[in-house]
Design a protein around this nucleic acid. Structure first.
Length: 254
DNA sequence: AAATAAGGCAACCGCCTGTCA
DNA sequence: ATGACAGGCGGTTGCCTTATT
C-alpha cells in the first residue's frame, strides 16, 4: 500500500495563487511562523496542499527574497557552484542569499545552460563540448587547483568544437598530451577538508548561509558532525552538509 | 492584426531522507 | 527495528508573455 496523499486533493485549489491566498498565507506565517505545513492550510483557511503553501512561501512570498535579474557575480557563482555540486540547487541556493533553489534552477535551464553551450562548454560536465562527447566524465581537477579556479568561463582555448571560448582552467595545447595521461583515469572523489582560515571564519560568521539567516556554528557542526560531543554552539549540526561539509570555499580536491 | 513559436517561470509531482513513536 | 509521517529536493509540466512571421 502506498503512502497516503499529503492532502485531500479533491478539495484543494491548484494552479496560480490569488492575491487573497497570498495574503492569508503571509498573515498566518507572520503570526505563527513557518513549519507544520501539513496543518497550515486548514489553520490558515486555505484550500491548498501543505506542500503548495510551503513552495509558495519559500519561492515567492518570503520577505528576504531578492527579486530581479541575476548579477554577473551571481552568474559566475552559480556556474562555479554547479561545477562542484551538480544539480544540487538547494545547496547552490544556500550560497546565494535571497535566491531560491527553484529560481536558480530555472535560471540555469533558461539562461546559463544556453550561455555555456554557446561558448562550447557542456553545461553538465563543464568541459568543452567536444571533450564531453568523447568522455562524459566529470571534470578532473589539476592537483593544486582550488575550487574558485576550476570553473572560470572566460578564456580562449581553441579546439573545443569550433568555439573560441573555453574555461581558463583548461590547459594549453602543448600540455594536452600530458594531461591525456591522467585525465580521469579513475574518478577520484577523495576530498580533504581544512579548518577554515581566520578569513574564512569571518566569512562564515558574516555571510548569510541559509534562507538569509545568520548562523554561528562551532567547528564540529560545520563539519556536519551531528550531535557531536564537541558541539559547543548548541545547534547539533542541524545544517549538516549545507553548512560546511560542501562549502566550496573550504573544499579542496586532491 | 492574427497566428504561431519560443522563452521564462511558477507550480506540481513523485521520490528521498530524517525524525519520532 | 520498523513504519508512518513531514519536510525537502530535483525533474517536469503547463501557462503566460514576448517575439517573430
Amino acid at each position: 500500500m502506498g503512502r497516503s496523499p499529503c492532502c485531500e486533493k479533491a478539495h484543494t485549489n491548484k494552479g496560480a495563487w490569488t492575491k487573497e491566498e497570498d495574503e492569508r498565507l503571509i498573515a498566518y506565517i507572520k503570526e505563527h511562523g513557518e513549519g507544520c505545513w501539513r496543518s497550515l492550510p486548514k489553520a490558515a483557511g486555505l484550500l491548498r496542499c501543505g506542500k503548495s503553501c510551503r513552495l509558495r512561501w519559500i519561492n515567492y512570498l518570503r520577505p528576504d527574497l531578492k527579486r530581479g535579474n541575476f548579477t554577473q557575480e551571481e552568474d559566475e557563482l552559480i556556474i562555479k557552484l554547479h561545477s562542484l555540486l551538480g544539480n544540487k540547487w538547494s545547496l547552490i541556493a544556500a550560497r546565494l542569499p535571497g535566491r531560491t533553489d527553484n529560481e536558480i534552477k530555472n535560471y540555469w535551464n533558461t539562461h546559463i545552460r544556453r550561455k555555456l553551450m554557446s561558448r562550447g562548454i557542456d553545461p553538465a560536465t563543464h568541459r568543452p563540448l567536444r571533450e564531453s562527447q568523447k568522455n562524459s566524465a566529470i571534470p578532473c581537477v589539476k592537483g593544486d587547483h582550488k575550487a574558485e579556479e576550476i570553473v572560470g568561463v572566460e578564456g580562449n582555448k581553441t579546439g573545443n568544437g569550433g568555439n573560441e571560448e573555453a574555461p581558463t582552467w583548461w590547459w594549453p595545447e602543448e600540455e594536452e598530451e600530458e594531461h591525456k595521461q591522467w585525465r580521469c583515469p579513475d574518478l577520484n572523489l577523495e576530498f580533504c577538508m581544512n579548518p577554515p582560515s581566520p578569513q574564512q571564519q569571518q566569512v562564515f560568521d558574516e555571510v548569510p548561509v541559509k534562507r538569509g539567516a545568520l548562523f554561528n556554528l562551532c567547528f564540529s557542526c560545520r563539519l556536519g558532525v551531528k550531535k557531536s560531543s564537541e558541539c559547543n554552539c548548541g545547534s547539533g549540526g542541524i545544517l549538516g552538509i549545507s553548512s560546511g561539509v560542501l562549502d566550496y570555499r573550504s573544499l579542496h580536491t586532491k
